[in-house]
Design a protein around this nucleic acid. Structure first.
Lengths: 141, 141
DNA sequence: TTATAACCTAAAGTGCACTTTATGTCAAGA
DNA sequence: TCTTGACATAAAGTGCACTTTAGGTTATAA
């Protein structure tokens, strides 16, 4: 299971990224340089997929590309950057907590709206039924 | 407490939106037309602030401007659109649930990363201490 | 051997949600 | 009266994260 390699297409499928996005990440330096075959094609390893998973996680929690790049660069620089890395992750974790809080509140507001609209609908239907009944009365008379 | 009015500046403070953003929302038709004073200045009511709160809620949960506009238009059109509105809200609520799920998973991944880095740091520190001790030994000898 | 599919690069383009700029009106206080 | 500050509009600009395009190389398979 080790030393397995993947084409860019396979990696795109595994990570749910598009092929251009993966290339873009590499040229931007967000994804560390990927090994190449003799003909110049990218040869991805499980390690590369690990980097992409990390990138997806950070992007998906709203971290801008530049900051992710910084983090990845620190990782590549080695031991001396360990404190910076930990600090960035902790700070980012806090923003994710805030996002969760905000999102939870918004979710509650939406649920409230749904219920409000449902009650509105019941009133509308009731009114329509009343009108229909009155029309039937008119027909009989 | 009723019939109170607000300037655009006051509304910006209340909603945490910028003044240009509020104007932008109105010109885009996301915010229904706001009353004007004789001189053409916008005169906001609590109802307008209510619309903006709704817009913030939907934007903050990732709904695109166009769709919010659609929803607001339906609200203005009245009773006949009640089913469409309820459906949109329910569908959107589902996407918010998904966002919460994804975000929660990412949060866990970040926590995992933090712990991983903390352990890495402990190893680095231990190694450095070992080196320091060895150097002290060298000095003594 | 030739065609087709998968890969490559560099550069330009896109979409979204604002933001900024330039210009102008109007009401109130010094 | 004049200037200052808050408001207005229309149009152009910005920032971000990709995506698309154009043009080219290489490996496999009919």
């Amino acid at each position: 299971m080790e030393n397995q390699t993947y084409t860019i297409k396979e990696v795109a499928e595994k990570t749910n990224l598009t092929i251009p996005t993966i290339r873009y990440y590499e040229t931007e330096g967000v994804l560390p340089p990927v090994e190449r075959s003799e003909s110049g094609n990218r040869v991805f390893t499980d390690s590369d997929i690990g980097w992409l998973d990390l990138i997806c996680c950070l992007r998906g929690t709203g971290m801008p590309i530049k900051k992710i790049k910084q983090f990845v660069q620190w990782c590549l620089e080695g031991d001396d950057t360990i404190d910076d890395r930990i600090e960035m992750l902790i700070e980012h974790g806090k923003t994710v907590d805030e996002q969760l809080q905000v999102l939870t509140n918004y979710k509650a507001a939406i649920e409230w709206k749904i219920n409000y609209h449902r009650e509105m609908k019941m009133q509308i239907d009731a009114r329509r039924n009343a009108v229909r009944l009155m029309e039937q009365q008119d027909l009989k008379s």
